[in-house]
Design a protein around this nucleic acid. Structure first.
Length: 301
RNA sequence: GGCGCCAUAGCCAAGUGGUAAGGCACGGCUCUGCAAAAGCCUGAUCAUCAGUUCAAAUCUGAUUGGCGCCU
């Protein structure tokens, strides 16, 4: 029989952290973060990373495992996450995966195994430049020739993904379609998925409040500090808040503009997360207020 | 009270006689190695009324509302 693994998803500011810690206490669990930004050390305030006090003794995995100048990706995540699951299970505890990064959760829950593929950043950049010069269409045409299925699925304007598909072919000699098929493996655990959500309006006002709180807690100093110590990697730089604050510090945005932009982009992010999670019918949606009880009831069955 | 200007989607905004550009927001969506990323889809009959004209958001008049100046 497969081991049970609890998964808690939800948009940013939905209250996942509090629910997961409470649940961990109740069911003798430990928490594995599924968050592409909390994985970075020193990025604390901006990622709303739980503090030591909040964790209240519950062990958290996959927080602070890479430095802001390092590049991270799903394949690495998948690897680390499964190791963490094993470690928790060996202790006889229940793993609780918590986070808002749909892509990362997706690979666990759908049993995707990545092969080792070298990156070819040079070729990738060459392709992107080419698309900028000759137009997105020409790059897409190229992909159509070698991998028509991927070309069909990727919008021609999505240069990043088109280039990735071409890069895969150059590096491995196989198409993305072939690789994707080969990566589809059996799901290893009995994942029980739960989603937290609020009425849209409420969620948005929670987001606004959270952004204000981050600023009060010193988001700007945090960003200043990190940029002084590290050359922030392109993946870490994608974190909400960091680029906006950097723009503010450079004088490209006024303080108010920065705050507004940060709130707006966080709302957009929450919306995208909901789009991602809504289509997964395995997720049971819960009211955050009584989520802990509901989850306990549900996983006992 | 007088004179002048303005009135296009939630917001910004093009269009000055031939049948409503664009941007943003909102909403929806895609997703296997940058995913807090990248990309896609989606809305009006032009303040109101009357008139001129084959044809008006575009011209005329009145009304309403806003802005500015003057007494």
């Amino acid at each position: 029989m497969k081991a049970k693994v609890v998964v808690i998803v939800g948009p940013t500011a939905s209250g996942k952290t509090a629910v997961s810690i409470e649940l961990a206490k109740r069911i003798n669990g430990e928490i594995i973060s599924a968050d592409s930004m909390q994985i970075y050390k020193y990025m604390n305030i901006g990622t709303a990373k739980p503090t030591k006090e909040e964790m209240s003794g519950i062990k958290h995995y996959l927080l602070d495992v890479v430095l802001p100048n390092e590049i991270f990706n799903v394949a690495k995540y998948k690897d680390l996450a499964e190791k963490a699951i094993e470690e928790i299970l060996e202790k006889g505890k229940t793993p609780i995966i918590v986070g808002g990064t749909g892509l990362y959760i997706n690979t666990l829950v759908n049993g995707i195994e990545f092969e080792n593929i070298e990156e070819d950043v040079e070729y990738r950049n060459y392709l992107i430049e080419k698309a900028q010069k000759e137009g997105a269409e020409s790059l897409h045409e190229e992909l159509k020739k070698i991998d028509p299925v991927s070309a069909e699925n990727i919008d021609k304007n999505n240069i990043r993904r088109v280039a990735r598909a071409l890069e895969i072919y150059k590096v491995t000699g196989r198409t993305k379609t072939e690789l994707d098929k080969a990566s589809q493996k059996e799901v290893k655990y009995d994942y029980r998925m739960f989603g937290l959500n609020w009425e849209r309006e409420k969620l948005y006002s929670r987001i606004d409040l959270r952004v204000d709180k981050m600023l009060e807690e010193g988001l700007i100093d945090e960003v200043k500090d990190i940029t002084e110590k590290f050359e922030i990697s392109r993946t870490a730089l994608q974190g909400l808040g960091y680029k906006e604050v950097i723009d503010y510090l450079n004088g490209n945005l006024t303080y108010d503009e920065m705050v507004e932009k940060l709130k707006l982009e966080t709302r957009h992010y929450a919306k995208r997360q909901l789009t991602w999670f809504r289509r997964d019918s395995r997720i049971t949606w819960l009211e955050p207020q009584n989520a802990v009880e509901e989850i306990i009831k549900s996983i006992k069955e």
